[in-house]
Design a protein around this nucleic acid. Structure first.
Length: 564
RNA sequence: GACCUGGUAGCUCAGUUGGUAGAGCACCUCCCUUUUAAGGAGGUGGUCCUGGGUUCGAGCCCCAGCCAGGUCACCA
């Protein structure tokens, strides 16, 4: 491994610390007495008191016999005031002059003991009496500085670096931590809401023999002992409904789902959906519950139901408008598509300037019109209801119109946030709907559903009327934290693999092999033997000298290349 | 998948018509006891994303590729 100069210096410091009898990676527990946040928010009670803190040293300004440093713990940042005389043991100034000033670095994890005070400038600080090295950092951190006006200088902002090395992102960019703390507040808020109503949190299989419950391309894997293909789940719906059949009144699961599709700023191959099923309810009840839930989440995570999302201010205060999808289309396009067949719909699509193809059925066409012309207009939370039957194979037929289903999607900021319905519990109807999906699949739709025979068998035992909902957690967190990309709300978003450090190139190997049999050798002889072009030769010999495998020596007899 | 933009020191970025690779911060050496992104002086540090090509000479021009971001398409 090639070390940079900065890394070599730190390794040397590490060695010197050991020589001074300081263990750079001690095993012993380090007991702190408080946290930085506690001190900052209760200065009056801490003033003049001794505290013990632990954290990472984020900066250091040495001014002769006194220095200032910044310590960051999980709760915040605190200035340290370090003086030679306080740190020294009588005449022995090693601890300050050598250890603190020379051998410690930005990024090291330290324990400090000292008194709380305010500097002349008024900044709350610790007057340090004792420093304990808890972990030596060997890689230099990016230096991000914030000035008095809150302007950030040299910010560590390249998304590639930030996502690939999230740990560095979390260390230097304080706001990143806030996003993930809020994410957990959001899921905790949901759990509280459901648990307080007696709903049961359950876990269902991630590895499924039939990937059901949604329309998506699954990841495939293989079980060796059973010698069967298995799929990573694309949804957990069919398993949760089996549990309703089994007699639970309400079950929910935060489900990591996997879809083998494109990646962009709103799609990650693995993502989280919360699915909830409640027996003896319908989709009207579910809309009421959803507004109540989202209002609570907004209050718990942001302290208010008004949340900024990009340019817009979105109010999660219940209730939300409820708009049937066909009415939405009529409003935004002027076309009343109710009752239209496939060819009539295609005419409408063409009039609207949309492309259509042969694989599209009635449901898909209506979905396309809505997606293209209506969806983006719903900024404030809005329930879009009563979707056509064809695009909702798991949904109960509408009680007053057999062409529609009892389904809603919740739109926020022009995007789908939740999808819910009165669940289809007629096993014979369900079998027919699956068959229709199969026909779609034969027509070329490679995402149509498989038929899950065991799920149908479960329905035949009888499932109570049930309403279910799926809420996209990543998207919800994006809304609540005002982030426009999913990568910002995932700790470790999927990235393409990093390129490996290149080994010796073919040209370098060729030159190296000649050298092995003949070294030292006149540079010009080596060059002509290698048969390389000027550029390739230059590249190869520079590569070899750089990696300290060969050296070029200018002697009285001429330029010689020698193996090292 | 298409197009656009970018990739240069640990970090943030300059780099002229193709002519000796730069700055700030960080780091190293020295001076400084309550400083505020940045005190002063000096110094070290490079796979200019990778591979080809053009050229006497390429960070820069040409071709191919990799990675990232954006727009669109596909997709919930």
């Amino acid at each position: 491994m090639q070390l940079t100069a900065l890394e070599i210096v730190r390794r040397e410091s590490l060695q010197k610390l050991r020589e001074l009898g300081i263990n750079p990676y001690p095993a012993k527990e380090f007991k702190t007495t408080t946290t930085i946040k506690q001190i900052l928010s209760n200065y009056d009670t801490f003033e003049g008191k001794e505290v013990i803190l632990a954290g990472r040293m984020m900066s250091r300004r040495i001014m002769g016999k006194a220095s200032f440093a910044e310590l960051k713990d999980a709760s915040g940042r605190m200035q340290l005031y370090v003086t030679r005389d306080e740190l020294s043991n009588g005449e022995d100034t090693t601890m300050y002059n050598t250890v603190f000033k020379k051998l410690l670095d930005m990024g090291d994890i330290l324990g400090v003991k000292g008194d709380v005070f305010k500097t002349k400038v008024g900044e709350i600080s610790i007057h340090v009496k004792e420093i304990t090295l808890l972990s030596k950092s060997l890689k230099p951190l990016p230096v991000v500085k914030t000035d008095a006006d809150g302007n950030i200088h040299d910010s560590f902002s390249d998304p590639e670096h930030r996502y690939r090395q999230r740990y560095v992102d979390l260390i230097v960019n304080d706001y990143v931590k806030e996003t993930f703390i809020k994410r957990t507040k959001i899921t905790n808020s949901m759990r509280e809401f459901f648990n307080s109503r007696g709903y049961l949190e359950v876990e269902t299989p991630v590895l499924q023999p039939i990937p059901g419950g949604a329309i998506a391309r699954p990841f495939t894997t293989h079980h060796n002992a059973l010698n069967i293909p298995l799929y990573l789940r694309i949804a957990n719906e069919l398993y949760l409904k089996r549990l309703i059949v089994g007699g639970f009144d309400a079950v929910y699961e935060f489900s990591k789902d996997f879809r083998n599709e494109g990646m962009d700023r709103t799609h990650n191959p693995e993502f989280t959906v919360m699915e909830l099923y409640v027996a003896y309810k319908d989709y009207h009840w579910m809309m009421n519950m959803t507004e109540e839930l989202l209002e609570k989440i907004a209050l718990d995570s942001n302290g208010t139901s008004e949340v900024p999302i990009g340019e817009n201010m979105v109010s999660f205060k219940a209730p939300y408008p409820r708009v049937p999808i066909l009415e939405a289309i009529k409003t935004h396009t002027g076309f009343d598509v109710a009752g239209m067949n496939e060819s009539e719909l295609k005419v409408v699509c063409k009039k609207l300037g949309m492309e259509v193809d042969d694989t599209m059925g009635v449901g898909k066409l209506i979905d396309e019109i809505f997606g293209e012309k209506c969806e983006h207009t719903y900024i404030q939370p809005t329930f879009i209801t009563d979707y056509p039957k064809e695009m909702s194979p798991l949904t109960k037929e509408h009680r007053s119109n057999p062409a529609l289903t009892e389904r809603f999607e919740l739109m926020v900021n022009g995007k789908e946030l939740a999808n819910a319905y009165s669940e289809l519990n007629d096993p014979i109807d369900q079998r027919e709907r699956f068959k229709d999906q199969l026909k779609l699949s034969e027509k070329g739709d490679d995402e149509a559903m498989f038929i899950d025979q065991d799920f149908l068998r479960a329905l035949e035992y009888g499932m109570p009327p049930t309403s279910g909902i799926g809420i996209g957690i990543d998207r919800l967190v994006m809304f609540m934290t005002n982030n426009s990309s999913i990568q910002e709300v995932l700790l470790f978003p999927q990235m393409k693999p990093e390129r490996k450090a290149p080994a010796m190139s073919e040209d370098e190997k060729a030159v190296f092999n000649i050298l092995k049999s003949d070294s030292p050798i006149l540079l010009n002889n080596l060059k002509s033997q290698s048969n390389l072009s000027n550029k390739k030769w230059d590249k190869a010999i520079k590569g070899l000298t750089k990696s300290k495998l060969a050296s070029v020596n200018n002697t009285d007899e001429g330029l010689f290349v020698e193996l090292i």
